[in-house]
Design a protein around this nucleic acid. Structure first.
Lengths: 188, 188
DNA sequence: CCTATTTCTTAAGATATCTTAATTTTTAAT
DNA sequence: ATTAAAAATTAAGATATCTTAAGAAATAGG
């Protein structure tokens, strides 16, 4: 795990093994079983999670009781409920493992200490947050430009192997389509 | 302008006047007239803009020729087409002043120098990027949870004075509603 | 294997929202 | 003030997508 983290961090700035060790001490490894929740609506999201391995989804439940998947997280992504983590208010989001998932988690206090201790981490998180924004910008982009059918085709074409890791009704949810309608789209 | 920037930066970390000066030297003040474009689709977005005063909109044009406003930017916000700025590929977005707008702009090269020169800036941009993410997270949130009518009412209620600065058809665009339908919603 | 659970499909009727196009109102420019 | 341009409204018909409900297929657990 430490090696994986090291490879990841060194993408963005160069860290000595000693620095990696220091950062690593702030992190707590945790494993979540399939279907287990990392976070539920109403909880205050106290951690950022670095996904070592596995798959998680971030979603909310609307007033009709429908789940809306906001994004998926896979290995080498940091994930959290940003708003809750930063404002320390109850989260509106759920975070759930879709496969057995191993993460390194860090709470706010330790993260702040780590920033003080290893300022280069500011850079890493500045960049990963930018990458997150780009991912969202792209999603919004293709949302506004495409019909349901087009979004689905695009998704399947772009991420064929990923699409096979998740049930179709979750793809539907992510693409903001009802599973029934997606089923029709696939037929026609 | 320098004072405004200083106040802004000191929200996130403490900077000496000397550091502010150093950063300020990397920045170029520019003024855009109402309706002038800061960026057009196809351009590579070479700058981040810190809005001193005024109002801009970021939007794309879909394959039906409709404008979709992604967000507005006002004083004390950094704005850019993230994807284009970071990847240095042509932007899919337009950026346009809706009022006479003064900005401080910085290009990638200078920003990178500034990061080297004043590492605390990594922190500032890490945090502003996080704030951006939160804003987007909130927008997506209220998008998935609300009908068109609800989105409009919510927007007007939350930002009554801001709503008066922009034409109704742009609010419609931002809320992903056709102007005609918004007009109906307002009536009923 | 067998059963239970989860996921996917079908189809009919409902509806929120869009399209088009014309008209009115408001705002800006000379 | 007058005209031109921009923005907002109206209304009718069209459609993409949802809802509900039921049944079929696939997958996973014991």
């Amino acid at each position: 795990m430490k090696t994986q983290l090291q490879n990841y961090l060194n993408r963005y700035a160069s860290f000595s093994s000693e620095e990696i060790d220091r950062f690593y001490n702030y992190l707590t490894p945790r494993t979540f079983q399939k279907k287990e929740f990392l976070l539920k609506e109403g909880d205050i999201c106290k951690n950022k999670f670095f996904i070592i391995d596995g798959l998680i989804r971030l979603f909310n439940i609307d007033n009709k009781g429908h789940e809306n998947i906001i994004h998926f997280g896979i290995e080498n992504w940091w994930t959290t409920s940003f708003e809750s983590f930063i404002t320390e208010k109850p989260s509106l989001l759920y975070m759930q493992a879709l496969e057995k998932t191993t993460v390194l988690s860090i709470n706010k206090e330790n993260l702040e200490k780590a920033y003080q201790n290893i300022p280069k981490l500011e850079r890493v998180f500045r960049i990963t947050t930018e990458n997150m924004l780009i991912a969202i910008e792209r999603k919004n982009e293709f949302y506004t430009k495409m019909s349901s059918k087009e979004r689905y085709d695009f998704f399947i074409k772009k991420l064929p192997s990923f699409a096979q890791r998740i049930p179709q009704y979750m793809i539907a949810s992510y693409l903001d389509i009802t599973p029934e309608y997606l089923s029709e789209l696939r037929k026609g």
